[in-house]
């Protein structure tokens, strides 16, 4: 094939593929704003005659979606902040402090990363009941702070291992203690890595389903994915209500993606993950 014929052919194929990948999003968006009557007569492919927002509004009120957004935000934000703090402290000891048994610690954190949540769920369930934390958001915050900071510790330790020694020595000569060096030298310099970690932790925690499903039993404590997930198969969920619920689940995810995209490309570029 000549290169002049190739160009439109490749572009057309790729465009079709991307549209195929994006078509579920389009279907959801179109049918979330369609009235049930119109869906019944015209089916999923027609564009809605008018913008019908009652389906989304009704669903929002029915599941108290504002509350679910708030719950998800509080949990994801607390976990992201706490897990970054714990990761920094651990990695400061392991990557820069070079404590004894360093590699054993790293293997331990690597293993903790690999363990599936399925293996953790029952012990955590039992323990949380014993200490009265079952069905509280605090339980989820503690559990995910531990899980995420296992990954964060592993990653940051290798970033900190290459931290320029001269800067640490200069800080020591200036009389800075360990805490001051951490706070004034290490944290500011590795800020791009920390913001990437924060972003990952926030999005991962927001998207979590399995453990929140098990631990958050009361409706008023549930997160967005759990509240939407348990409704599937409910007889009140018709076609337009289901797409309205899907749209409400998709929008925050796309919003975070757009907000955080710049952090991610900047952070990775400045050598966060080596």
């Amino acid at each position: 094939m000549t290169s002049r014929a190739l160009r439109p052919a490749v572009l057309a194929t790729l465009t079709v593929l991307v549209l195929l990948v994006l078509s579920p999003f389009a279907l959801v968006a179109v049918n979330a704003v369609k009235s049930p009557d119109e869906y019944a007569t015209d089916g999923p492919l027609s564009l809605p005659d008018s913008l019908y927002l009652k389906g989304i509004a009704d669903f929002w009120i029915r599941v108290d979606f504002g509350e679910k957004l708030f719950n998800s935000f509080v949990i994801a934000f607390s976990v992201a902040v706490l897990a970054v703090v714990v990761s920094v402290l651990n990695a400061y000891a392991l990557g820069i402090g070079r404590v004894r048994g360093r590699s054993a610690f790293l293997v331990f954190f690597l293993l903790a990363n690999l363990l599936p949540q399925e293996a953790l769920v029952y012990p955590l369930y039992y323990l949380s009941k014993e200490v009265g934390l079952y069905n509280t958001q605090l339980a989820i915050v503690i559990i995910f702070t531990a899980i995420q900071s296992a990954f964060g510790t592993y990653l940051l330790s290798s970033v900190f291992a290459t931290f320029p020694r001269e800067m640490l020595e200069a800080a020591a000569i200036d009389g800075a203690g360990k805490v001051r060096t951490l706070w004034r030298v290490v944290v500011p310099i590795s800020w791009p890595s920390l913001s990437v970690l924060f972003t990952f932790f926030f999005i991962w925690t927001w998207n979590e389903f399995f453990l929140p499903l098990v631990f958050l039993i009361s409706n008023d404590k549930q997160t967005v994915p759990v509240a939407l997930g348990v409704l599937q198969g409910d007889r009140l969920m018709d076609a337009t209500t289901t797409s309205a619920s899907a749209l409400l689940g998709i929008l925050p995810a796309i919003l975070f993606f757009l907000i955080f995209q710049r952090t991610l490309s900047r952070g990775v570029m400045s050598g966060a993950i080596k």
Binding site: I203, P225, L228, Q232, A239, S245, A246, A253
Partner: peptide
Amino acid sequence: VLPVAVTGIVWGW
């Protein structure tokens, strides 16, 4: 970027 539960909802419908 979607939560896994949301991909399930989209495709379940």
